[in-house]
Design a binder for these strands. Sequence first.
DNA 1: GCGGATTATCGAACAGTGTTCTATTGTTTC
DNA 2: GAAACAATAGAACACTGTTCGATAATCCGC
Lengths: 225, 225
Amino acid sequence: MAPRKRVSHSLENVVEATIDLLDESGEGALTFRALATRLGGGVGSIYWYVSSREELLDRATDEVMGRVLAETDALVDGPDPIGNVRAVSLAMFEEMVRRPWLGNYLMRNTSVQTNSIRIFERLGQQLMTLDLSPKQRFHAVSSIISYVVGVAVDMAQPPPREFFESGLEPAEFMKAFADGWRAFDADEFPFIHQIVDEFERHDDVDVFRSGLDMLLAGLRQQAGA
Amino acid sequence: MAPRKRVSHSLENVVEATIDLLDESGEGALTFRALATRLGGGVGSIYWYVSSREELLDRATDEVMGRVLAETDALVDGPDPIGNVRAVSLAMFEEMVRRPWLGNYLMRNTSVQTNSIRIFERLGQQLMTLDLSPKQRFHAVSSIISYVVGVAVDMAQPPPREFFESGLEPAEFMKAFADGWRAFDADEFPFIHQIVDEFERHDDVDVFRSGLDMLLAGLRQQAGA
DNA sequence: GCGGATTATCGAACAGTGTTCTATTGTTTC
DNA sequence: GAAACAATAGAACACTGTTCGATAATCCGC
């Protein structure tokens, strides 16, 4: 059999390679040329399966959200609906910590991203047993998702270039950064001084969980439970 | 006097023109060439004042945040600290609705963006009279800011291209979009069906305010007030 | 088996981007 | 006035997403 002169792709292949590229080297590394090289083919071929870079990212996002959906299937049967919402939110957030590129493209093009709607539905269903108006439910789910995605996007931001230039360990750089805060005038920035120690040793997930619990406490209160 | 053959710039000019360009045509329109044209000069000159596009956006963001800071000066003297936090958050959010480009670059490079730290400080000071640990305060302020920015970024996303292609009025397009949701299977998507009417006529600021109040209710509860 | 139509692959070419570089102009300083 | 310096200007570079036409592989009716 003569060796193939051409590679053969598929939408699954392309999306898979896209996700791998994003996972390994971040969003900046996702170029059509890099993707083509990884697939062993030419640049133009990708456009057969996908009509733009944006669609590429949408499809990758939707695929990952599908997996999140599958993984959170079991988290939704607990007795406390708000607890279930909390569990799903945490799982979502953790996925976005693992994949810093994810947050930026979530909740974008809902016509392609079917699985985002399913997450929305899943969270909303939990609130259907609570004593809330449809409007309150809609607001609550929207806010929770915005919070989850917002914090994840915030925290996914790559460290400033000064970090790479310094060659410091993360903890050392954090210390240096906190010291910069400590150098602020104590009278003008009393709050900064009060929390700078917490800031220096904080864990992103803790902060996220803390805010999520505030949000859910407010929701619980609203539901009169 | 012979006419000048060259334009004369300044950092203030450059940042000003940057903000104007961003306000008028969004982030995509901010190119060095467009900016140079607007300033009436050459591309290279901009690099005399600024070392990258990122710094340009940082400076523009910081400038706008300075104005927000000034405008919220009077919002912070009310008797209820959490009410004050609410007022400042709302003002921030409204600024980000006016300037959809703002959110994406907020809380990025804090070494340049001095005014972002000042906002952080301002919100934090309000919590200093409440019965909370420094860690709780730090978490609370971080979460609130993440929420504000997160929701703003979500809502600042430009409408899908289908909107422009359709030529519909915003309300009409919203109706068409909602109808898409209504077409989903009612058994599989009960929540979607329950809130689709709210979704169709919802106001972004209402949703934001609702979530903010949930968050602040949780905070109030945490402070034992 | 054959031939035409369809599907898919490929890479050169295009327009646009941020950034670098060097020549040039204007201004200051002595 | 002349040398030193501060600013301006735009051509050139490397890189990007996207378009396009040429080509290869496959399929389908005969």
